[in-house]
Design a protein around this nucleic acid. Structure first.
Lengths: 342, 342
DNA sequence: AATCAGATTGGCAGCGCTGCCAATGTCTGT
DNA sequence: ACAGACATTGGCAGCGCTGCCAATCTGATT
């Protein structure tokens, strides 16, 4: 036997659909139909194609598929998602919800993280748009003028998640952060707290937190017990920031009897401060958070907080994108969790 | 004037590169070169193109670009990342690290979440491979046979993150979970703890936690103080699960003097249990975690735990993908944080 | 004024797949 | 046995962009 090694292929070309067609002894379009399980073909053809695919280890090239299919219905099975951060568990939750629904409808998602920076968001919108997605899911209602222009011009479905306080571009899914602030204030007032402070994180970046604070502040003022003092930690929210900020605040205002935190992370830090300093909660100082993290429920005294439907928001956003209903605002509400800290 | 509305364009075609070329009065390849800032062109041409792009609101189609450029160097500026979960802050941290480095090198990432399910991981590998990425970043060293076959067959760069205990396919970036377990055990032994228990979460799914436990258990046994008892919470790790599991464990073994937790979330729950039950930490019971979450440092008594270089792992993984060095294992180590709980 | 290297530029063939349409094959009923 | 209806199938023109190569233009040089 003349076993001469064939010259090593200079560059292993990837298996293409047309290789599969040849191997299976059928036409390209037939393979395409079988692979996408669309149109009609015989069982026999299907088997042959399946065999050829397995034998060749064929992996379809989605890039080519999407390009060819662009302009048509099935073309763009892709959506872009922009979230401000991955640090805060809130956003991964939104992603999980969205991904679950997206998967069901056969969509792939490409995500971008803006770091709470409007300019970066605008750049990301451009980048994601260049994937020619069927839709874009963004966070919040506030965007740079350029971002809005791009979103508008794209002509695709846009979903703005989380916040319903304002006008949306297309579909809006979330809850009213303002109302959360108001309800939080009402709860504290109802429990008899009167000298109330606020501990938050960098609010210039987190507009939703700012809206909650606005609602909170206004409700207190209306009730005749205006917000006594605020303390803003620089940087993103964290337990450490919350703990340090509460410590600073109490130095200035040791008379406060309740604290509204920008979120549970901050509140947890505040709680730790109280534990460390022997400040009785809620007897001496009440604590109120936001987001209902799992961890807040496991505390010795469950944190009083607001449960937000994060997964549901993600899911609803994805579903609204896929379906093509009218532009609308979907308010998924929230729930006040009366824990033991306020 | 015969102002007859032209028939409304039946379907607004998107602006393409060739529209830009016409508008700018230059050839397509020229526009392409200018847009990618590659090759040479005059300042004048550049301005004309820029103008035309702005006037038309042109957004390049990455799909087409990548398809056309496939096979060439600059072709695949894309990497796929597969992580097991978004719930655990560890993985978002890895993503952040990777994204930062990837952005710098002009790569886009497509991510997939496997939910700790090997089959789902295999399916995701297929899905991501169909984007024809330049490389794939996956989590851990254990994959289904099918997954390994696909990864091998793909011929692209593979990075396995987090775990270095075992053989990798190509590049491995992480630390030794086994060694973490050993060091954790040594620390507890050195501090004089002898009746040590373990509280973990569903270990069949989290293989890294299993490796830590194995190292931990072995070290204790070698020292003549074998692990006294374990309690495994069903489901994923969480503070609530940790709190409940520790409670159950202490009913069976009230004599234990130290607990090793599968991670900080669980440990935090354990700490809450101690606070709630008035169990002195570490006097009556010592607690040891894993991961060094921010929150663990903010506790009244900082948690004794292991700091893992999560961001660095993500960054290193991404860098190794982009560069094309040899297959290798990069051990980024870890650090024992001696807190106040053990 | 002729020459030549280098800077600019445009044309065009694909990249791998899908949509469209015409060409077969298959199975009824009459 | 034959038309008509439907099930299957293959060919081929793009989708929008990039790589390659040849054509043209620019100065500087001899």
């Amino acid at each position: 036997m003349n076993v001469r090694e064939p010259p090593p292929e200079p560059e292993r070309r990837l298996v293409t659909l047309s290789d599969v067609a040849r191997e299976a002894g059928v036409g390209e379009s037939t393979v395409s139909r079988v692979l996408r399980n669309q149109g009609s073909f015989s069982k026999r053809t299907q088997d042959r194609v399946a065999e050829a695919v397995a034998r060749l280890g064929y992996v379809p090239n989605r890039l080519a598929g999407m390009l060819a299919g662009s302009g048509t219905t099935a073309g763009a099975k892709l959506v872009g998602i922009i979230i401000p951060s991955l640090n805060n568990i809130v956003f991964p939750d939104l992603l999980r919800g969205a991904n679950a629904a997206l998967d069901r409808d056969g969509f792939q998602s490409v995500i971008g993280v803006s770091d709470y920076d409007p300019e970066r968001e605008e750049a990301l919108i451009g980048a994601l748009l260049s994937w020619r997605p069927a839709g874009l899911i963004v966070t919040g209602l506030e965007h740079s003028a350029g971002a809005v222009a791009r979103l508008r011009a794209s002509g695709i479905r846009i979903v703005e998640m989380i916040d319903t306080d304002g006008a949306g571009l297309d579909i809006v899914v979330g809850f009213s952060n303002r109302a959360v602030g108001c309800d939080s204030a009402r709860h504290l007032l109802a429990r008899g707290y009167r000298r109330i402070g606020y501990v938050g994180h960098d609010i210039a970046r987190d507009l939703r937190a700012a809206k909650r604070l606005a609602g909170f502040r206004e409700t207190l003022a209306l009730a005749g017990h205006p917000l006594a003092e605020t303390e803003i930690a620089p940087g993103p929210s964290s337990a450490a920031a919350g703990r340090a900020a509460l410590a600073r605040l109490l130095v200035r205002r040791p008379d406060l009897d309740a604290i509204y935190f920008s979120n549970d992370d901050m509140a947890l830090g505040g709680y730790f401060h109280c534990l460390a300093e022997g400040i009785a909660v809620p007897g001496r100082l009440a604590l109120f958070g936001f987001n209902a993290l799992d961890i807040a429920a496991a505390m010795p005294q469950p944190l009083t907080t607001i449960r937000t439907p994060r997964l549901e928001i993600g899911t609803a956003a994805a579903e609204r994108l896929a379906a093509d209903g009218p532009a609308e605002t979907v308010d998924l509400g929230y729930e006040l969790i009366a824990g033991a800290t306020a």
